[in-house]
């Protein structure tokens, strides 16, 4: 059995274990948000590109 060697700062067992307990939730939430952000970013770029092109053409 190996023990975690952590750092000079005691992270606190409860604080450490809570993070492990909610890890799945945090990862899922981040993935979903990233997906929506990327999608929104894609459309923003697309439309701003169209606007820029429009201006150039106009």
């Amino acid at each position: 059995m190996k023990w975690f060697v952590i750092a000079y700062l005691d992270p606190g067992s409860g604080s450490y274990l809570l993070q492990l307990l909610i890890a799945g939730l945090l990862a899922a939430s981040f993935t979903v948000k990233s997906f929506w952000r990327n999608l929104a970013g894609f459309f923003t770029r697309l439309f701003s590109k169209n606007r820029r092109d429009g201006k150039t053409l106009g």
Partner: peptide, 21 residues
């Protein structure tokens, strides 16, 4: 969680915390 797990040792097998997490 701090009250419940106070002084409980942390082992490597306890679990992983991914970069995404």
């Amino acid at each position: 969680s701090q009250q419940r797990f106070a002084d409980r040792p942390i082992k490597e097998e306890t679990g992983k915390f991914s970069r995404l997490a």
